[in-house]
Write a protein that binds this DNA or RNA. Sequence first.
RNA 1: CGGGGCAUGGCGCAGCCUGGUAGCGCACCUGCUUUGGGAGCAGGGGGUCGCAAGUUCGAAUCUUGCUGCCCCGACCA
Length: 440
Amino acid sequence: MRLSRYFLPILREDPKEAEIVSHRLMLRAGMIRQSSAGIYSWLPLGLRVLRKIEQIVREEQDRAGAIELLMPTIQPAGIWRESGRYEEYGKEMLRITDRHDREMLYGPTNEELITGIFRDSVKSYRDLPCNLYHIQWKFRDEIRPRFGVMRGREFLMKDAYSFDLTPEDARRSYHKMFVAYLRTYERMGLKSIPMAADTGPIGGDLSHEFIVLADTGESQVHCDRDLIERSAPGEDTDYSADLGSVVQQWTGKYAATDDKHDPARFERQVAKENRVTARGIEVGHIFYFGTKYTKTMNCKVQGPDGSMVTLHCGSYGIGVSRLAGAIIEACHDEHGIIWPDPVAPYRVGLVNLKAGDRDTDAACESLYSQLGNAGVDVLYDDKDERAGAKFAAMDLLGLPWQIIVGPRGVKLGEVEIKRRDTGERDSMTPEAALARILEH
RNA sequence: CGGGGCAUGGCGCAGCCUGGUAGCGCACCUGCUUUGGGAGCAGGGGGUCGCAAGUUCGAAUCUUGCUGCCCCGACCA
């Protein structure tokens, strides 16, 4: 993409409404614009990031055996009355009336909808287990939206729903999602830690929040260093096996958010040198809720012995739009964003230091087309601006690689290549620069 | 929902106290000079001063009401 033909409204100064760093940088880098409190438009650059995140989430859900579908944003009130949550949910639910005075709502979550679909379609235990997910916009009318995209009212969320015949089977389904989550965050270049969460009225040990570590995170967390150093299960994980032992490796170590922190237990359970207190952001939540909705909504299948069995369910959420903010919180410096390669909107920023100079233009055009042909996403700054402004903008955008092409270097047959994360810069021939990027 | 604050061009702000018909920096347009870490000079375009009433000869400025947004707290993927 040529910057001269792109839509990328960069702000030089900080908008005053943005307090936290990810919000500031997303506005400045032209990723988002606020529409109203807690509701944002995603501009082209922001949308690319959102799509990258979404795609990683999707791939890991698919790998774990979940099946994608798409449910609507607007739901009828009726099914929420069936589950009893229409009255229960309160003002967080945005209620709407259509032209026929029918009561509708903008979905804050989809348990009712999916349970309804499943109930009407699946009648036999032979179709179990089943895990269905979608990636869809949700709306929760938060009392006070804040932190930009991190706590908006409208947000993009991946939510999966598992259906099983027995609690034991449901546990296996839960474990799959647990592992998929570890993999998902790691692929985005984040360090995530599962922490035991409130299980609500069901009880048990099957609810975890996934916290991403970031110095500017909203909540304080305490955990065993082993959890931070451990890497996620590999691509070769066999999701058809029971992953209980894998999950056990993670849940066996101490990890708690501040509100559930037990200092005495922390000291007893974790050796002094392994005690870590850090800040984090919640980016996912998984839980088993048993028959909560299947019972009230009468969702049953026929079991092997011919009897009708109420299904056991869990739900598994990932805040996709929130992750865009969370990643920036975890990955930035004083100059701007530092995108981890897998979620970067473009891999390479090609900087023409003297647009209009014949040799410099030619060198850039050549690199631009070669990178394009090699399937590398490039943002080419071909605008007629001063070098300083271009450097500042490129650092703000945080693309992993910069190739800097100026008349001075071109005379010597060289371009400069820079890694945004380490700041390392090297001069080399354009061919070598190309090779360096392609080998990564 | 309790407490605090803000609303003036795309962004950041001054002007308001002490009413007289809107200004600064950045960004944008034109020209010239510049050109490797947010250039200089000259010229230019762009504003229902959040909305509505009121006071007044006259309101960005004073009064009242409303709306929007931000921050702190309780709540949350």
